[in-house]
Amino acid sequence: MGPLVEYVRSGHPDLTNRQMALLMLVYLTPGPHTVRGLAKGLSVSKPVVTRALNRLGALGYLRRQRDEMDRRNIFVAKTDEGADFLDAFGRLIAGKQQRTRAAA
């Protein structure tokens, strides 16, 4: 059984490829992150990032944070829930890799 099947069965919310890419981009690259910068990094439009961010924000995986130096700017910030989700997802993938090596 592949890691994606295990993920579906895990009970975690289903994320689209764009949502997962956005989540991983924020967690795996240095910030600060803006919608404009994330859209450029993913080669998609700002509305695409905004929709994905709305979903990830509702799940508690990312949050918007106003820049205290320039209140017009909004940063996309990590959350503990998002870090926990990615950690669990990484363990699913790592577990599958270990089982595959052991069976070989």
Rank of each mutant, 00 (worst) to 15 (best):
K40H: 08
R64A: 03
M20G: 00
Y27H: 11
V49M: 01
R51N: 13
R18K: 09
K96T: 12
G60F: 02
H33E: 15
P3Q: 09
G2E: 09
M69I: 14
G90M: 15
E68G: 02
I93F: 13
V35T: 13
I93G: 02
G11V: 08
A88P: 01
P30R: 12
A103P: 06
G11F: 06
D84S: 08
V5P: 05
T34I: 07
R72F: 10
K46W: 04
L92D: 05
A77S: 12
K96P: 00
A102Q: 15
Y61W: 13
D84F: 08
V48P: 01
V35F: 03
F89T: 05
A102F: 14
P13W: 08
Q98C: 07
Q98W: 07
A39I: 04
L86D: 11
Q97S: 10
L42A: 04
V35N: 02
K96V: 12
T29M: 11
R63S: 09
V8W: 09
P3D: 09
L92I: 15
A52V: 05
L23H: 00
V48G: 03
R66H: 13
Y61K: 07
G2D: 12
V8K: 09
A83G: 13
V35I: 15
P3G: 14
Q19V: 08
R72S: 10
R36N: 01
A39K: 06
N17C: 04
L22K: 01
R71G: 02
M1W: 05
R36D: 06
R18F: 03
N54K: 08
T34A: 09
L28Q: 11
L92V: 09
E81S: 10
M20Y: 01
V8G: 07
H33C: 12
P30T: 11
G82Y: 13
I93K: 08
M20K: 07
R18L: 14
L25Y: 06
D70V: 09
S10T: 12
Q19C: 10
V48A: 14
D70W: 05
N54F: 07
